[in-house]
Design a protein around this nucleic acid. Structure first.
Lengths: 344, 344
DNA sequence: CTGAAAGCGCTAACAG
DNA sequence: CTGTTAGCGCTTTCAG
């Protein structure tokens, strides 16, 4: 592994052919006789020659690197997504670099520029919604695939969960259980269409079932971290309020927040679901633990990553003229953090 | 963002200077008058010219990409590690690509070759221990930094937790609590020095305190997934055995396995810590939840990632002749899954 | 201090 | 079918 790697012209010389022939043979491009091709391929394999991809990239004007830009790899939902995408693309000879925008659209933009500068050949983007992004997303030099986000003006390829429906069925579940005072711990609605659409689904459900939406049952603009969920619970339960005035159930924008929320409740003797029901979104692995048993809405991350990989592959090989848009049906997974409303 | 990017010669032409001068100015290399340099820098900034990094990479023979090869990004411990390293290196102008070896040394090797082929300028490696790796790790063309693994013959730069000590203090904690029959759910000892050293620490502690090591209290070669921990518990508790013959406590090779183990226990009415004490390793975020409260040994992943990033940076800029090796002290975090041994 | 020229390793017309 | 010739965009001697 230590000797200087061969170059294509060295290989060509050894074989007594020209570099172009070697190149053609290796890229199975037409214009090489089968016998010569075979010979080259075997030889190359034997001596372990591998083309320098940087040179290829420069020469071709494109690489086989794909950028995956997402919020934070420490969120298990994203870790799953990244893992799936990466695994699928690896086997096709693409390598994917993951960037953590930390939900900051400036960082996101930097990464996008990075990707262009580095001749990345595609970007899979869980975008931080912003007016700016909405403007340029459609006109990047390289193919973009939006994942789990949607923006007003972008109409390129896309793959999302129906987050409106996710919010709707989550809320309906609670309503079915007899809850009337339902709060919502919202994510960063401005920067996440997923979050805002879940919120809208929630409101729609309230509306359909003639329930009031109380702004003061809700918390807004929470970042997606566990600790923030903890603090949210703290602020909710430490402000004195008649029990009857307090929501009996909460929708929580993602599992991480919900876990933090439950953590606070556990520490302070607030029983779930006896005192309060909660349902959230994502269905990360930890939500299914017996000790947790979180009722949540699955986004089917496995499907999502598979579709994302497939779609990106398609964009890279033969881009369809009609951008493909795939929508995933969310599924409510009822576990143990929700129960029938009981008069306090 | 859509117009074709400028090339260095275009920029040079616009300024009426030569490409080399622009290059020198931008890399603050000597040989440009301050006034010209300033002018160039300003102009470049204004029009937003950014050098094509692929071309740079080819020309220089090295890039500013660093590969991070680890087992599985879905393990929160690795997600934390990756996040920390990436964040630290990003700000220094390096981009890091994460590869999931899935604990398979063949994949690992592939990724290493990949990295060389792509002109990566450094590799941060949580290696899958293997004889093969041990041979070539020292002689790669590019700087390597081993993280949380150690091999027999490799003596390059390194950063590890003292995993022997980790195993030792974990076991001692249990022994202090009066446990005498202690089992171990081992990870993949052959491919993970972290795992095997924890195991050795455990055995040493037993030895020091005159306790017997029972091979049949132990399970070996578990992969690191939650579900495997679940199955381990299943196999342990479903084989009939006198309670007095059963371990009263377990060391478990990492938190993920432990979580799976606890999951099974929860589902089957096995109370922790009343019926069985457990302590594991990593201290991932989910272990600290009130509903979990796992006693575990922290590897201080934050320190680890910071050190790793610093060390890699050093290797890339001015490699010291003596390879630096840093060892991190593990810390036992006592929570709620361990208690005094009680006669059954 | 500055510019011209060669070259990094590969691909892609263009000839034969 | 095969080889020759230019580049891709940048860095880096080497002259001036």
């Amino acid at each position: 592994m230590s000797e200087k790697p061969y170059t294509i012209s060295q290989v060509a010389k050894m074989l007594g052919v020209s570099p172009s022939t070697v190149s053609r043979a290796m890229n199975n491009a037409p214009g090489v006789s089968d016998s010569v091709r075979k010979q080259i391929l075997e030889f190359v394999d034997e001596i372990g020659y591998r083309p320098n991809t940087v040179a290829q990239s420069l020469s071709r004007g494109r690489s086989n690197m794909v950028a995956l830009i997402l919020g934070d790899i420490r969120n298990p939902f994203y870790a799953d997504l990244a893992f799936g995408i990466q695994k699928a693309l690896d086997t096709k000879g693409f390598i994917v670099t993951t960037f953590n925008s930390e939900y900051d659209y400036k960082k996101e933009k930097q990464f996008i520029q990075f990707a262009e500068q580095y001749n990345y050949s595609g970007i899979i983007l869980v975008t931080v919604n912003s007016e700016e992004a909405d403007k340029y997303l459609g006109h990047l030099d390289i193919p973009v695939l939006l994942v789990n986000r949607i923006t007003k003006h972008y109409n390129g390829p896309l793959i999302v969960t129906d987050n409106f429906q996710a919010g709707y069925i989550a809320a309906r579940h609670l309503i079915n259980l007899g809850h009337k005072r339902i709060g919502f711990l919202a994510g960063q609605n401005k920067s996440s269409s997923a979050s805002s659409q879940r919120f809208q689904g929630f409101q729609q459900a309230l509306n359909n079932y003639q329930l009031d939406y109380h702004a003061d049952y809700c918390l807004y603009d929470l970042d997606w971290r566990m600790n923030t969920g903890y603090q949210a619970a703290e602020s909710i339960f430490s402000t004195p309020r008649e029990t009857k005035q307090r929501p009996s159930a909460f929708l929580i924008a993602n599992d991480l927040l919900a876990l933090g929320f439950m953590n606070y409740c556990g520490e302070h003797g607030i029983r779930i679901p006896d005192d309060i029901s909660i349902v959230s979104f994502d269905d990360i692995a930890y939500s299914s633990l017996h000790q947790i048993q979180l009722t949540t809405v699955s986004q089917h991350v496995e499907t999502m990553s598979k579709e994302a990989a497939d779609l990106m592959l398609q964009l890279l090989t033969d881009p369809p003229k009609e951008p493909k848009r795939v929508i995933i049906e969310p599924t409510l997974i009822v576990r143990n953090t929700t129960q029938h409303y009981q008069e306090p």
